[in-house]
Computed example of a mutant assay.
Amino acid sequence: MYDPNQADTRVADLRAALAAHGITRPSLGVDLPACAARCPTRPPMITLELLATPAEVSGVRGALRPHGIDVQLCASELVTTVIRHVGEGVPVTVRVWRDGGRVRLGVTDPDPRALPVLVTVVGSESESGRGLALLDALAVRWGVEQEAGCKTVWCELLVPVPETPERPGRRRRSTGALGQASARS
């Protein structure tokens, strides 16, 4: 899962950053150790490095198919947002972490200034402005992490935990060396 020592360090960093803005823990109403524990501390399951183009969006969806339609939809919306607001052809990194029934998706682009804005009212004739509303509806939570030369827009989604195909006491069918089905215990 996570290293408790790292979580303690993250909590201290969060408290220091918040205190610099006059925000103290009681005023937050959140459990900082729990928030730090949810931050990914291990390498992502999937890392896709690509240029943000409309053709690459379908490739991202295909690569994320095992994680479900909601993850695919959020990823394609975030990459499309980069294309529209940062520029076509910019380098993008898509990362996926899975922890039990929760998936964290992060899309990193090279422009820390172009921040996403959730539009609450979109006209019926508008051709854009619904991507973050979709993400907001599907995700448990989402946000932006800014660094010196980039930003990452991330979201966390609840997904079903895949059932294990192994069941004690049951025989599993597998394909033999000649392509014929055979029973194996």
Rank of each mutant, 00 (worst) to 15 (best):
N5A: 15
A7S: 07
T9W: 12
V11A: 05
A12Q: 11
D13F: 09
R15Q: 13
R15V: 15
R15F: 00
L18H: 07
A19L: 14
A20I: 02
A20D: 11
T24A: 14
R25Y: 01
A37G: 10
P40L: 07
P40V: 13
T41Y: 09
T41D: 13
I46S: 07
E49G: 00
A52W: 11
A52L: 12
A52D: 03
T53V: 11
A55Y: 07
A55I: 06
E56T: 03
S58M: 08
S58C: 05
G59L: 14
G62Y: 02
D70H: 08
Q72G: 13
C74W: 00
S76Y: 01
V79Y: 04
I83V: 10
V86H: 04
E88H: 05
E88D: 09
V90F: 11
V92L: 12
V94K: 09
W97R: 07
R98G: 06
D99M: 10
G100D: 14
V103H: 10
R104L: 14
T108K: 08
A114V: 15
T120P: 00
V121Y: 01
G123F: 02
S128T: 14
G129Y: 08
G131W: 09
L132Q: 01
A133C: 04
L138V: 06
C150F: 10
T152D: 01
V153N: 03
W154A: 03
L157Q: 02
V159A: 07
V161Y: 00
P162A: 01
E163L: 12
P165W: 11
E166H: 13
R167S: 07
G169I: 08
R171W: 08
S174E: 12
A181E: 15
S182Q: 15
S182M: 15
A183M: 14
A183P: 01
